[in-house]
Amino acid sequence: MTRKIMLVEDDQPILDMMDIILRRIGYEPVLVPDVLDALERVKSDPPALILLDIMMTPMNGWEFLEKLRTEYGNKDLPVILFTASPSVQEKIAVMKDPNLGVLQKPVSIPELKAGIERFLGK
């Protein structure tokens, strides 16, 4: 099973940091700074999991998730949302979608590790 994890995040320093941390905890990061490229990349190079920032332009994390799940019909790919402070919207989304997780920013290394392992196993 692939250890590829796609990180959709428009802030370069965070991408750089996550790159290091993900490698450190044994995964193979695929960095996608532009959300508009992300769907193509999912098709061409499917990852095992997507780490998705919510506050992005021109498309936010929710819109991307909606496209992924409905337009591309990809309901099985695990997605972990990075949220500033979890709201009701996120809680409900998580309840409805078994392949969706939420992590609150900034995430600590053990939290990130546990969050990913929930979907991919150790």
Binding site: D11, P13, I14, D16, M17, M18, I20, I21, R24, K105, P106, V107, S108, I109
Partner: peptide, 9 residues
């Protein structure tokens, strides 16, 4: 976030 991430690391 990166500062916290790096420090944690």
């Amino acid at each position: 976030q990166p500062i916290l991430g790096y420090l944690n690391l």
